[in-house]
């Protein structure tokens, strides 16, 4: 059970990363590793809407905020592993690549794939986040108190 939980955590990690990855970057990295394995569709790519929710006051009861576009698909490799993808936006090729990565991460290619695809995506994402946070930090106000000369 413990191993299932940590396996799920790891899988959640890469599925979440793939969902948010810029489609062009995933395409460049994934298409660079060689031939695609054969697969059959369990669910061919489908574009839909997911309703987002917020909480009143940020922490209270939920309310519906509006939808976002999501593309999902599921496929099965010839070797039997099943890959799923739920990715932001309307790019079917992106969903297909994400599902292929998910399936291949369950095979002997996992280490190679992690190195060639997931680690660069993760690093670029962290870099972009850091650059944005640094720009925000530069706009933090430093207050100084004016001394009134009354006495």
């Amino acid at each position: 059970m413990q191993t299932t939980t940590s396996a799920n955590e790891a899988r959640k990690g890469w599925l979440s990363l793939l969902a948010k990855a810029p489609p062009a970057r995933l395409a460049a990295l994934f298409d660079g590793i060689g031939d695609r394995p054969g697969f059959t569709w369990l669910r061919s790519p489908e574009i839909g809407g997911v309703m987002l929710r917020g909480r009143m006051g940020g922490t209270g009861a939920p309310f519906n905020l509006g939808e976002m576009t999501v593309t999902r698909c599921a496929l099965k490799l010839e070797s039997g592993e099943v890959g799923h993808a739920y990715v932001q936006g309307r790019d079917k090729a992106h969903a297909e690549r994400a599902a292929l990565v998910d399936a291949l991460m369950q095979t002997g290619q996992a280490a190679a794939l992690r190195e060639a695809v997931l680690m660069p995506l993760e690093a670029e994402r962290a870099g972009a986040k850091r650059r944005r946070a640094a720009r925000a930090a530069a706009t933090k106000v430093d207050f100084f108190t004016m001394v009134r000369g009354e006495d």
């Binding site: 489908e46 839909g48 809407g49 997911v50 929710r53 909480r55 939920p62 905020l65």
Partner: peptide, 17 residues
């Protein structure tokens, strides 16, 4: 658009501001 489902309420406390 077909409705795929709904997301968990967003955690704005964890926002990257």
């Amino acid at each position: 658009l077909p409705r795929i489902g709904h997301a968990e309420p967003v955690d704005t406390g964890a926002m990257a501001c």
